[in-house]
Design a protein around this nucleic acid. Structure first.
Lengths: 164, 164
DNA sequence: ACACATTGGTTATGCACATAACTATTATGC
DNA sequence: GCATAATAGTTATGTGCATAACCAATGTGT
């Protein structure tokens, strides 16, 4: 791939990151949330109580980041951290009632943001977009085991003619 | 759009941002660069000397960010800042020889990263990816005038005009 | 039983990003 | 001319993210 195309792609990803994050920030600010915190709330809403190590894995960020984010959300009264009875090292993180209510509000915003984001794109493209983005993510993911495994068990990607 | 799809999309964008940035960081680290700095070097390489306000616009980040990044790159000897003769407020930023050499190395990495990123995707998808990502970006861009332009060229992949 | 690696979590520190408040210069009103 | 707005840049501060170093609890070998 020549530099022109490579640059166009890398720059497009970089700018999308910046702008999508900025837009999310402006939507979340009225709720008193910063970007990243919404992901934690939504994760707990999806799966119920988790320990921080699981959150770190699910959110795709490192344990120290989870420590700080949970601390702030706890200070805001949106989550609760209780020591795990079976493992004294771990602390169980769960949503408070306030956190659940907040998560519901975030869900609303999230739908609006998604619609705004894909505005003007054909439905067909919108449908395959999450799968494409996931492929890109797995391709550059240094946290997960290998890229091949991800492709193999990914139901959203429909191009199995790849086995280099 | 229901929450399931919205969440899949927003989360995909969030994770792509994190992983692509992390991968870029691991590639740039050997050069002594942090992510974001490479964008500044490439921009100067593309367009020649610029003042910081222009860099801020081109990079899509705010003036204070440019101040800090230029300061660090200047400390590293990769760029030079000279006061503009015509406007005593502005300072002209340009690549040093060291910076030019570094930009060339970044270009190599950038090609490798782009290829790695789109691995396993059909060429057709790869071709229209930059255009799609740009549309997404424009849709959520709060810096630029409006999102009307994005709607107009909904299916357009190539964007010859810089839309400045 | 006990040394040792592994795991869960925190603290310290650094970077890119943001906004808000500020200075210094330039442009524009009258 | 001179007051005022607009612009270029910096400083202060706060956030999410990262890595490195560290502590405490749990597992595992022999």
């Amino acid at each position: 791939m020549d530099f022109e195309h490579a640059d166009a792609l890398n720059q497009a990803i970089r700018l999308l990151s910046l702008r999508h994050r900025a837009r999310a920030a402006s939507l979340l600010a009225p709720l008193g949330l910063h970007t990243g915190q919404e992901a934690l709330l939504l994760q707990l809403d999806r799966t119920g109580p988790m320990i921080q190590a699981q959150l770190s894995e699910a959110l795709g960020c490192e344990p120290p980041s989870v420590t700080l984010m949970t601390r702030k959300l706890e200070a805001g009264g949106h989550i609760r951290r209780t020591p795990a009875p079976s493992d004294k090292r771990a602390s169980i993180v769960e949503l408070t009632d306030s956190g659940k209510a907040l998560a519901d509000q975030v869900k609303q915003l999230w739908c609006a943001l998604a619609e705004e984001t894909v505005g003007g794109l054909p439905a067909e493209t919108v449908a395959e977009l999450p799968g494409i983005l996931k492929t890109l993510t797995d391709n550059v993911d240094t946290r997960r085991p290998t890229t091949q495994a991800a492709l193999a068990r990914s139901s959203a990607v429909r191009s199995p003619s790849k086995a280099s």
